[in-house]
Every structure is written in structure tokens, then in C-alpha cells.
């Protein structure tokens, strides 16, 4: 059995925030890995970039994911990336996002997928 104590994890959110629970699940997973001191990168890919959109106003009883994103750093999820192709396609400006995610072009995406020990898509 491996004695290794940490594995780097790339959590990939590929879903918009309120139609399904998957975006919330991705954020929860990233926070859990960070809480157990695993190096975590959270990537919003494709449709997932809608989770980063500013101006979210969910009704009472629905978890506000825009605000939840603001707590990622408190949990130790330091690295958050957003797929720039998907942002552009959806008319989302990097400066108007609910969280200052690092823009990732396709070269950066390839590197993210090739350098983490684990990739968990949600």
C-alpha cells in the first residue's frame, strides 16, 4: 500500500448552477478534498462557467452558489480556473464573474488535465 499522504485533485464542474445539483456537488467535493489537506484545483469547464456568473439571485431555500464560491478560499481551495472559450461563447466577461477565477485557454486546460493525480468530473 502506498505511503503517500496527498494526491493532487482536479475537480471539474461541467454543469450550470441551478438546473441540477451537480455544480453544488462539485464545489462540495473540492471543499472536502481541501479540508483534508489535499491540493485541489477547481475548474469550471463548458456549461460549468455559468456557475461563476455574477448577479445570481436564487430564491429562499436554494443555496446561493455565487456566495458559496466566495468561501472556497476559506476552505483552502486556492486554485480556481474558468474555461475562457466557454466564457466567451456564453457572453460572460472575466471581470464580471462572482469569483476571480483564473482564465484557462486550451493550452492551460491540457496542462491541468495532464498534471493532476486525480481528475473528478461532476
Amino acid at each position: 500500500m502506498s505511503a503517500q499522504r496527498t494526491r493532487s485533485v482536479l475537480v471539474v464542474c461541467r454543469n450550470a448552477p441551478y438546473g441540477r445539483s451537480r455544480a453544488r456537488d462539485a464545489i462540495d467535493l473540492a471543499m472536502a478534498f481541501a479540508a483534508f489537506e489535499q491540493p485541489v484545483t477547481l475548474l469550471f469547464l463548458g456549461e460549468g462557467v455559468f456557475t461563476l456568473a455574477g448577479g445570481q439571485q436564487p430564491p429562499a431555500g436554494i443555496r446561493h452558489l455565487g456566495k458559496l464560491l466566495g468561501t472556497l478560499a476559506d476552505y483552502g481551495v486556492g486554485q480556481v480556473f474558468a474555461d475562457v472559450t466557454a466564457l466567451a461563447e456564453r457572453g460572460l466577461a472575466v471581470r464580471a464573474l462572482a469569483l476571480a477565477a483564473e482564465p484557462a485557454n486550451d493550452d492551460t486546460l491540457r496542462e491541468l488535465f495532464a498534471t493532476h493525480d486525480r481528475v473528478i468530473t461532476v
Binding site: 502506498s2 499522504r5 472536502a32 478534498f33 489535499q38 486525480r118 468530473t121
Partner: peptide
């Protein structure tokens, strides 16, 4: 159990395979 069990599995295994 909690998500810590998934984290532990990620640390202890050589291969994690996701099904969705």
C-alpha cells in the same frame, strides 16, 4: 459516511475511476 471516505480512497488507491 462523509466525503472524508472518498478523500481517503483517493489517497490510498492507485487508480480512481469515476462513473456517471
Amino acid at each position: 459516511s462523509g466525503l472524508g471516505q472518498l478523500v481517503e480512497a483517493s489517497i490510498r488507491c492507485d487508480r480512481l475511476v469515476v462513473f456517471g
